[in-house]
Simulated scan of single mutants.
Amino acid sequence: MIQEIEKLRKQKDVMQRRIEFCRDKEAIEIVKRLNHLSFYYKEFTVDDIRSCTKLLSKNFRIKCSGDFTNVYKARINQTTVADKLYEVLEEEFCSKVNILGSVQHPHLVAMLGFCTDLKCIVFEYIHGGCLRNVLFTNHWKKSLKLLDLFEY
């Protein structure tokens, strides 16, 4: 009886390894299929952008330093987003959309869609303010503190 139990345990181990192999093989096939797909982004209409920003209201404009005064905080499909309007030629805007659409990285803000008529790109919204403010304000404060340490 003990020999039969051992035999069944070995069979169970073999079957578990086969199941794991099949799962790994299936996962590899899924990844291969996903790599061949290109990512498509939603093309929003002018009405979509204007309705989510209340007709591009100043109340929804994100205040940042520098030239970035054309960014609006909005809600699309119960998701908070940042709509950035560009004042560029249509060809330049299309190339921006193509470039930003092809770049994906966990440390970059993701593009969710665009509106060609308004020349607007919809990005995920990151809480905590403008990246420029975070980088330069904190950077200069830290630099000044370091300089204070090295004064004679």
Results as ranks from 00 to 15, higher is better:
Met1Val: 07
Met1Pro: 07
Ile5Trp: 12
Glu6His: 08
Glu6Asn: 15
Glu6Gln: 15
Lys7Val: 08
Leu8Thr: 14
Leu8Gly: 09
Arg9Asp: 14
Lys10Ala: 14
Lys10Ile: 11
Met15Glu: 12
Met15Gly: 09
Gln16Phe: 13
Glu20Tyr: 12
Glu20Lys: 10
Phe21Pro: 03
Cys22Val: 09
Cys22His: 10
Arg23Ser: 08
Asp24Trp: 08
Asp24Glu: 06
Lys25Pro: 05
Ala27Arg: 15
Ala27Leu: 14
His36Ala: 11
Leu37Asn: 15
Phe39Asp: 01
Phe44Leu: 06
Thr45Ile: 06
Val46Gly: 00
Val46Trp: 00
Ser51His: 08
Ser51Cys: 08
Cys52Glu: 11
Thr53Asn: 05
Thr53Arg: 09
Leu55Ser: 12
Leu55His: 04
Leu56Asn: 02
Lys58Val: 09
Ile62Met: 12
Ile62Glu: 03
Cys64His: 10
Cys64Phe: 09
Ser65Ala: 11
Asp67Gln: 12
Phe68Arg: 01
Thr69His: 14
Thr69Met: 12
Arg75Ala: 12
Ile76Asn: 01
Asn77Pro: 03
Gln78Trp: 10
Thr79Asn: 07
Tyr86Ser: 02
Glu87Thr: 08
Val88Lys: 09
Val88Gly: 03
Leu89Phe: 02
Cys94Val: 12
Ile99Thr: 15
Val103Pro: 11
Val103Tyr: 10
Gln104Met: 07
His105Leu: 02
His105Gly: 06
His107Val: 04
His107Leu: 02
Leu112Ile: 09
Phe114Asp: 01
Phe114Arg: 04
Leu118Asp: 04
Lys119His: 01
Cys120Thr: 01
Val122Glu: 00
Phe123Val: 00
Glu124Asp: 08
Tyr125Asn: 03
Gly129Arg: 03
Arg132Gly: 12
Arg132Lys: 11
Val134Asp: 14
Leu135Met: 13
Leu135Lys: 01
Phe136Ala: 06
Lys141Phe: 08
Lys142Asp: 14
Leu144Met: 13
Leu144Val: 06
Lys145Met: 10
Leu146Cys: 00
Leu149Met: 12
Phe150His: 03
Glu151Arg: 01
